[in-house]
Design a protein around this nucleic acid. Structure first.
Length: 372
DNA sequence: CAGTCGTGGGT
DNA sequence: TACCCAAGACT
């Protein structure tokens, strides 16, 4: 059976045989989630197969993003761009606008680059893990997931859910991050020869609905009899994580300039870095210092700036507070800036933090407007 | 290779 | 409230 591993505490709990996959697949057939990008379990055995384009699109959207947040974006994308060729034919700007609000915007740029590449190479995605991993925006996880789900390859799919499930199955004490290879090796032993894609999705469904980070529903778990963490009495203790570093606070000021007709002055951020390629209102630099930079003296141009409030926003590695100023101005747009009419604002590539800024100055401005 | 990169929902 | 963290990739 499975070779013993030094870091495994309860090596008798699960032996790495096929019973785990069998139990899990049986549970999946009965309790799988119905999701917009999914096909019914057992597709390949019925002679059908998922559309690789939809699998790829969903997997990229789901990177570090919740299922609930992805659903609406996925539907919008497949309606606007039903095929990889259609997405490749779309202007990058339109893709960024459609992605606005979903976060991690480099994903959208890589998505477009990947679509262009695949379309140029004939419109078909590579059907192997190695081939997929060469594409922009597709890393170890996503390559394995597409290979398994779309192409029936027995790839070891390891995401946050799988890390949690496996770390509990074997009660792994090593903190996450140092144990990637160990978990991957364990998953490789569990992947069944048949239905590897369903197995991968089943592991993720189990992690999302049963083996949850807090208060896992162990009594409902199809793997409870082989789970070492249950024997330990405290499954919630796993996975063991490294201590988090605290978030610094940055401050700045943002300036919402409004024309007589209501149009708002915007500009585009550089393609790389934070909120890369997205649209924003003029702002000062966001600095760690708390000083005069947040006063209207730092405005990009003189105007009758009136303080409209302050918004807060939390990014992955820092928190931000922006003082919002509002003014009505006349004349043309400064270099690198453009006017966005009232009915266009909701369609701009505005990240959430910028919608907060504009809302603070002009309540309702970023809400989608109904026709008439 | 540790840091960078968003956002919203759950507890 | 404050914290956790989600179907990670890239540098």
């Amino acid at each position: 059976m499975a070779p013993q591993d030094q870091t495994r505490k309860a090596d008798k709990a699960v032996s790495g045989d096929s019973s785990v996959a069998a139990s899990l697949l049986g549970w999946y057939d009965a309790h799988h989630r119905d999701l917009p990008w999914r096909v019914t379990p057992g597709a390949f055995a019925r002679g059908t197969r998922p559309d690789p384009y939809r699998v790829w699109l969903s997997e990229v959207m789901l990177q570090q993003t919740t299922v609930e947040a992805v659903k609406a974006y996925f539907r919008t994308f497949v309606e606007k761009w039903p095929t990889v060729a259609a997405l490749a034919a779309a202007p990058a700007e339109d893709v960024m606008k459609a992605w606005a609000g979903l976060g991690y915007y480099s994903r959208a740029r890589n998505l477009k680059a990947c679509a262009d590449l695949v379309a140029r190479q004939g419109g078909r995605f590579p059907d192997t893990e190695a081939g997929l991993k060469e594409l922009p925006g597709i890393g170890a996880y996503t390559a394995a997931a597409i290979a398994a789900i779309a192409f029936d390859r027995p790839a070891a799919v390891v995401d946050g859910n799988v890390e949690r499930v496996v770390s509990r199955l074997y009660s792994i004490e090593t903190p996450l991050g140092e144990t990637k290879q160990e978990i991957r090796a364990l998953v490789e032993k569990l992947v069944p020869e048949t239905r590897p894609g369903d197995f991968a999705q089943a592991m993720m469904d189990l992690g999302a609905t049963i083996c949850t980070p807090r208060r896992p529903r162990c009594m409902l778990c199809p793997l409870r009899e082989g789970c070492s963490a249950i024997l330990s009495g405290d499954p919630e203790r796993f996975p063991v994580r490294l201590p988090k570093s605290d978030k610094p606070l940055r401050r700045g000021a943002a300036f919402v300039a409004q024309r007589e007709d209501g149009a708002i002055l915007l500009r585009k951020r550089p393609d790389k870095g934070l909120l890369g390629g997205m649209t924003e209102v003029p702002t000062t630099a966001w600095t760690a210092r708390i000083d005069g930079a947040t006063t209207q003296d730092a405005a990009p141009f003189p105007a009758g700036w009136r303080r409209a409030g302050r918004i807060g926003h939390v990014f992955t590695h820092f928190a931000l507070e922006l003082d919002v100023f509002h003014a009505h101005i006349e004349g043309g747009a400064p270099d690198g800036h453009f006017w966005s009419l009232a009915h266009e604002i909701s369609g701009e590539a505005l990240p959430t933090v910028m919608k907060k800024v504009i809302e603070a100055a002009i309540p309702g401005a970023t809400r989608k407007q109904r026709a008439h």
